[in-house]
Computed example of a mutant assay.
Amino acid sequence: MASGRAADVEFFEKFRVWSQEFPPADRDVRLQQNFTGLGLTGAAPLTEAGPELVAALDTEYTAGRAHVEEVARTAPGIRRVNGWLLAIHGFDYNVDTFEVGTVDSPDWKIADDTLRIVSRAAAARGTVGKPRLRGAYALTYVDLDGAPLDGAHSYRITLDPVPPVDAFWSLTMYSVPDFYLVDNPIDRYSVGDRTPGLVADDNGAVTITVSRDEPADPADRANWLPAPAGPFRPALRMYSPRKTILDGTYDLPPLVRVD
């Protein structure tokens, strides 16, 4: 194989093969055809590519990966509320590929072609959802004051009311920058309406403590979401969300630093 980073060529070779084995939806065919000059739509394996094409693939891979990382963090075109990025349309391609569990509705689609494609990539990078379920997702990297979330501090978030859903909701902890679940002494990776012993106040509101160290107060400990020692990014998952989530009437509260 020609010189170049093998990982880059391998990535695009997988794209070439898989995009032909699983053809794109009608609305994405035109986009795929734009890749013809990079050898991504033909029959020739990219392992046989010459040095000029390998260099071009290397450049595109580096630039594309950086762009996806930036979009995953900044979420252009996505509504922001109290530091949360509302990734409601992250998996809008469901209706192109799946049937069961999907809804063919404007509420679940992104009309802009360019934004749609990069949003899909960012959603996949951020591991925010399951493509066969109707789910709305929200991500945040910052607290109420806009400071990056970090396990050196403790935070609280009060869901009042809790997310209006017809299925279930959960707040899940992920590391940064790899978005992995975070190991912790109680093997708890999320807190939600299915968490055993979840404590709510008299009005049904739920306050979740997000911290590296286990809270001393029993109520805080019952609703504790363990955090890593360093930066982190929680994701709020809301399955079968009601209209107030989709139309933006329901606003998510911020994470408030308490120490």
Results as ranks from 00 to 15, higher is better:
Val118Lys: 07
Phe22Cys: 04
Thr102Glu: 07
Ala121Glu: 12
Pro51Val: 00
Pro24Glu: 12
Pro23Met: 13
Val29Ala: 14
Thr127Trp: 05
Val100Arg: 12
Gly101Ile: 14
Gly129Tyr: 11
Gly83Tyr: 10
Lys109Val: 12
Glu60Asp: 00
Asp113Cys: 04
Thr114Gly: 14
Ser119Lys: 02
Thr47Gln: 01
Arg30Met: 05
Pro45Phe: 10
Val54Met: 05
Glu70Gly: 08
Thr127Met: 10
Asp58Thr: 15
Gly39Trp: 04
Ala121His: 10
Ala87Ile: 06
Pro51Tyr: 02
Gly42Pro: 00
Val100Asn: 04
Phe98Glu: 10
Glu21Cys: 09
Ala72Ser: 03
Leu53Met: 04
Ala72Pro: 00
Gly90Asp: 00
Glu48Leu: 14
Val103Tyr: 00
Thr62Ala: 15
Asn82His: 02
Ser119His: 01
Thr97Ser: 07
Ser119Arg: 02
Thr102Gly: 01
Ala87Trp: 15
Gly83Lys: 07
Gln20Lys: 01
Leu57Asp: 03
Asp92Gly: 02
Phe22Asp: 12
Val103Asn: 03
Ala49Lys: 05
Phe91Leu: 15
His67Lys: 14
Val81His: 05
Pro131Thr: 13
Pro106Arg: 06
Arg120Ser: 12
Phe98Cys: 09
Ala121Trp: 11
Asp26Pro: 09
Thr41Gly: 01
Pro51Arg: 05
